[in-house]
Nucleic acid binder design. Structure first.
Lengths: 203, 203
DNA sequence: GTCTATAAGAGGATAGAC
DNA sequence: GTCTATCCTCTTATAGAC
């Protein structure tokens, strides 16, 4: 790792730029509407050059999703390091980070059941490994938070996990932002509130 | 309206079949992946015939979305007729209907900010009128439910409305269904719970 | 209005020179 | 590895006969 030729370094830097562009475009438009021409133009290289780095559009998207999960795992590490934080604190922190990232336009939309990407991602080991790792960490926190009495014990941990995952593509953020009347911080607080405390008034 | 020729009736019946097919395919695959060839094959007519009924793929989708909103407005009427129901009862009933419809595979996904459909729908009067009407009805219930102390008064009515709208495309339903371990009724109860009461345990 | 056949164009992927 | 130019498939949309 430590000894890379100039050529190897520029290669990595370019791939990094490509993946960042794909992450942003996936967040903006989604997989199907994003075109490879667009990616190439945005990065500033020819389309054929793109295909020297990634074998297909699916591989491109998989790399972007893999990086997005990597960023989420980084946040998990940050939370693990906070020894005084409760499981609930950690879950809320991760959820908040997810909302912030989506609102910043940097969260590629997770693949729904119907997406053409889904099967490609399932076949992509780097993506699946990170997804499993993330689910394991969050799952453990959820079980702990339920044991602590912080999260509703009647909900299966799976349902809680999916509900938190779904915040990564929650359209409510975009709707409220489009209205233009609210600050990002305000929007995030409201969505955090509805996620953890619901719409109903608390007693 | 009462005097229609045989020809006119078959025309309407056919258009009805087309729109129903589009609603289902939109729910299954979304707008971009759905092809006009597919729609024609499913209805059982030639593609060129489809274009005699609808001028474009966008018009096709707009008609389907318009019908979906019409079905939602029908539910609003049903709730309005229940004189003893509270505003909160009505909101929950509509939300539950939305979840059931989505789980049944009959709810075309609402257009996100980024969708290629969005501008076409905004230009489609029938769609926009119904959307306004629906938002007005739900908005009035939300304000009433807040006055009743049933819904959190700190949330803008707009945020509550969007949160309920978002249940029409909530991926959590599909995720839990894909697991295969839970009944539809169970899944809907959990999502209703997280929507109105949140993930956190109630005191 | 329905069909077959085809135009027109977008977009993913590749050939081959440098 | 990068480029230009091109291929090829898929998809929207239409022409024209019946």
């Amino acid at each position: 790792m430590s000894r890379l030729s100039f050529r190897q370094k520029t290669h990595l830097v370019r791939e990094d730029a490509i993946v960042n562009t794909v992450m942003r475009l996936l967040a903006e438009k989604g997989y199907d509407p994003m075109t490879v021409d667009e990616v190439a133009a945005d990065v500033g290289i020819a389309k054929a050059s793109l295909y020297k780095h990634f074998a297909s559009k699916e591989a491109l998207a998989a790399a972007a999703m893999e990086r997005a999960l990597g960023l989420a795992l980084d946040q998990v590490q940050v939370q693990q390091a906070l020894v005084s934080a409760s499981a609930m604190d950690r879950l809320k922190a991760i959820t908040r980070w997810t909302l912030q990232t989506q609102l910043a336009g940097a969260m590629p939309t997770l693949p729904a059941e119907n997406s053409s990407l889904r099967k490609a991602l399932i076949a992509h080991r780097g993506y699946m490994d990170r997804l499993m790792s993330l689910s394991d960490s969050l799952g453990a926190w959820i079980v702990q938070a339920q044991a602590d009495g912080a999260i509703n014990r009647l909900l299966p941990a799976e349902a809680v996990l999916f509900t938190i995952y779904a915040r990564a593509c929650d359209p409510v953020l975009g709707f409220l932002k489009a209205g233009g009347s609210y600050s990002d911080a305000q929007i995030i607080d409201w969505v955090m509130g509805t996620c953890f405390d619901g719409l109903a008034a608390r007693a």
